[in-house]
Amino acid sequence: NMVHPNVICDGCNGPVVGTRYKCSVCPDYDLCSVCEGKGLHRGHTKLAFPSP
């Protein structure tokens, strides 16, 4: 899995490795796959980016 450079997960404050989930509503909100799997930020649609 690749690390998305200059992207920090807003759920756990860790690096985003593998798929990046970017909120389509909020201007700067990203989740890693673990936090997305936990259902964080469920109210907004997210775009999935498998690689940087």
Rank of each mutant, 00 (worst) to 15 (best):
H44Q: 00
N13Q: 14
G11E: 11
S33L: 09
C23Q: 00
H41S: 02
L47R: 10
P52T: 08
R42L: 11
L31H: 06
C23M: 02
I8K: 15
D28H: 13
D30R: 06
C9W: 00
P50M: 08
S51Q: 15
D28Y: 06
T45L: 07
G18L: 04
N13I: 03
V17P: 11
R42G: 14
P27S: 10
P50N: 15
C35P: 01
L47N: 14
D30C: 09
Y21F: 14
G43C: 12
D30L: 11
Y21Q: 03
G39T: 04
V25Q: 09
L47T: 15
F49I: 15
G18E: 09
P27K: 15
P5Y: 05
L40G: 06
V34L: 13
D28N: 15
D28T: 12
A48E: 15
C32A: 00
D28G: 11
S24Y: 06
V17A: 08
K46G: 04
K22M: 06
L40Y: 08
Y29K: 03
H44M: 02
V25R: 06
F49R: 09
V34S: 13
C9R: 00
R20S: 08
C35F: 00
N6Q: 14
C23T: 02
N6A: 07
S33D: 10
D28L: 05
G43K: 13
P15K: 13
N1P: 07
M2D: 03
V17G: 10
C35Y: 00
P50L: 07
G14Q: 10
K46E: 04
A48P: 11
N1T: 10
G18I: 02
G18Y: 10
L40A: 06
S51D: 13
T19R: 08
T19V: 12
H44T: 02
E36N: 09
P27Y: 05
H41N: 02
G37H: 12
K46D: 03
L31R: 02
R42C: 13
P52I: 03
K22C: 05
K22T: 11
G11A: 11
L31I: 07
G39K: 09
N1S: 06
H41R: 01
K46L: 15
V7D: 06
P52W: 00
L40I: 15
F49P: 06
K38D: 05
I8Q: 12
G11S: 10
G39V: 02
C35K: 02
D10V: 14
T19H: 04
R42Q: 15
V7R: 06
I8S: 14
L47W: 08
R42T: 15
C9H: 00
C23I: 01
E36H: 08
G37K: 14
R20V: 11
Y29N: 03
F49M: 15
H41A: 03
V34A: 10
P5M: 08
G11T: 07
V25T: 11
P15R: 13
V7P: 06
C9T: 01
T19I: 09
G18H: 04
D30H: 12
C23A: 00
C12N: 00
C32V: 00
T19Y: 07
T45K: 12
P52G: 00
P52N: 04
